[in-house]
Design a protein around this nucleic acid. Structure first.
Lengths: 345, 345
DNA sequence: CTGAAAGCGCTAACAA
DNA sequence: TTGTTAGCGCTTTCAG
């Protein structure tokens, strides 16, 4: 085991002294810039390695006026973070590309307060803490797509494909395709009264799913009037299901697995068997989904891929490169919560 | 709306010029240090406000050799991040105390690779990116409790109460109490053959729960031989349940809700009704738990509180203050997946 | 090819 | 009470 540096970490001066060269030479040698002999470069690199030296990010940041970090601000109740498997996967995807880049992720979780959220971005920029930012959970009234360009901060938004974010490029989540696939699947099974439980209407990714349902229903010549909002919570999903059940749908599409799970419970309490009396589909493919009773038919996104794409796009933007990556299509995972409807009800 | 700073953010020199004083005076004025007149201080502050100026974190970092950031490295498969509601809540708690402190959270997700994990901490330290770190998911063979002190990095570990982490202070999760409560609850209902499905034995918080179950069983005069490992996954929980069911327990305690959910499905497929034929308890109180059928009896931790406590402790350590905060006790949430066992089986 | 020196934005220890 | 100055650790000139 190499001797870990205790106390003050080594500086470039230490490396220079031990290698018997000047600080400038060390810099050139380690950044693979011309101006030093191969012999010197080798020796310098070896000493640096041996000292376990890495340039101070702050010194570099001052010179290049770069922070070597990107930011992600989340305006959510911390307790609500857990309900969303998308976020965790997204983080993982982001990290997978950041890891090789020398940049680091700065995360802030502020409450559900749009002003705090904006202030958080402002502070990160003014303190020069980040070189770019991710925009998640885009709302209909959202100041961020205007704010970040005004701050001169490169940014990438994540939201439904086709979403308009002004000058901020968007990594499009094709969740509409997922909803359409769910509708198609149910129609094929013979369903015609297919209800929809929306998430929280303030969010773009909520209304976009509702719109996709409407559009798909109409495309199949079905009326799109059976819908209600469940706000992405278990409580909300249960309540929406209770209201919807009175109008006797044969299937319900939920905008999240959590709401679908709550819906299944409500249906069962009402004496309905899933899928015999009611077909149910979810959205997200939570880890639980495959292990429920019955296993939940749901739409699987690939949040890890989305995160990776978003990070690529942001890095490209920061470096002034061009890039327009594609985001993967969602996938309908057919399990046992959907079936042919009973012929008569 | 104030004019957002576009292009180069203002520096202390701009503030000084506009206020008609020297840079030094600005620094004193804004840090509320003596050495400037009230009159000057007021004017400087006003100009700074107007310019929307904040000191560059990097310049400050160089002088004080502080990064004004703390780190969290997670060695997990990104896809596995989502299975753990504890993590999300923890993050929220950490942020809630960081928000007021001027420090920021740097997050890294590396794969399940202990060496990458250690390198990640090393790099963060050598680049002076962080002033302290959180240690999560402590394993039995874990190099971090030795590494971080050796690196001179303040750290706080989160794990089962009583866990030994050498020189790294521990925020104790009293999950053992939660397991004991579950055992107590089941015993009170009349169960005697109570099985346990462990998580992943490599983790301290996994074996500590197993130990707690063993201890509680013995304290009630029951034998503690019905247990198996489910590795915190749905698949694993299902497999463990299948094996355990052959030995006819009347109740199973799971070390996570996800495993419990999978276990309920397996039981049902085996023709067992929960809770009539088999009582089941989980751990974590996932958002889904209350909305399952039947609603899941489970142990609720308060990850937000744990995160807040850990952050307080870390900040105190960084500032050289003393602090030994308490972490909250877990709570058994009794729902409908537990009941009196059938008199005969 | 190498070394010395300037300077990034700030704070702290100085003189004035 | 002020203004000036010397660095923090690094990169990037510019001379040698």
């Amino acid at each position: 085991m190499s001797p870990e540096t205790l106390g003050t970490p080594p500086t470039i001066a230490d490396v220079a002294r031990l290698a018997g060269v000047s600080k400038g030479a060390v810099s050139l040698a380690l950044n693979d810039k011309p101006g030093v002999s191969e012999e010197t470069r080798r020796r310098v690199k070896q000493v640096a390695e041996q000292l376990n030296w890495r340039p101070s990010i702050h010194a570099r940041a001052m010179l290049r006026s770069r922070a070597f970090a990107v930011g992600l601000v989340l305006a959510r109740d911390p307790r609500q973070l857990a309900v969303d498997p998308f976020f965790a996967g997204f983080l993982g995807g982001v990290e997978s590309v950041l890891n090789g880049s020398g940049l680091v992720l700065v995360l802030q979780v502020v409450g559900e307060d749009a002003d705090k959220e904006a202030d958080s971005y402002r502070r990160l920029v003014r303190e020069r803490r980040i070189d770019g930012a991710f925009l998640l959970d885009i709302r209909h009234e959202d100041q961020r797509p205007a704010l970040l360009p005004a701050l001169g901060l490169p940014a990438v938004a994540v939201g439904p494909a086709g979403m308009d974010c002004g000058r901020v490029p968007v990594v499009g989540i094709r969740d509409g395709d997922g909803i359409a696939a769910a509708v198609g699947h149910l129609v094929e099974l013979g369903h015609r009264k297919i209800a929809f439980v929306e998430g929280a209407p303030a969010y773009r990714h909520s209304t976009s799913r509702l719109d996709a349902w409407r559009q798909a229903m109409r495309a199949h010549g079905l009326s799109a009037d059976l819908h209600d909002a469940g706000h992405f919570t278990g409580q909300g999903g249960a309540a929406a299901t209770r209201r919807l059940l009175r109008r006797r749908p044969t299937a319900i599409i939920y905008a999240s697995d959590l709401m679908a799970i709550a819906g299944v419970s409500v249906a069962r309490e009402a004496g309905l068997d899933v899928p015999r009396d009611l077909s149910v589909t979810g959205f997200d493919d939570n880890p639980e989904a495959a292990h429920l009773h019955p296993p939940l038919t749901t739409v699987r996104q690939d949040p890890v891929a989305v995160g990776a794409v978003a990070a690529e796009l942001l890095l490209a933007q920061i470096d002034g490169r061009q890039a327009t990556p594609e985001s993967p299509a969602p996938q309908l995972i057919v399990r046992a919560s959907t079936a042919t409807p009973l012929p008569m009800r």
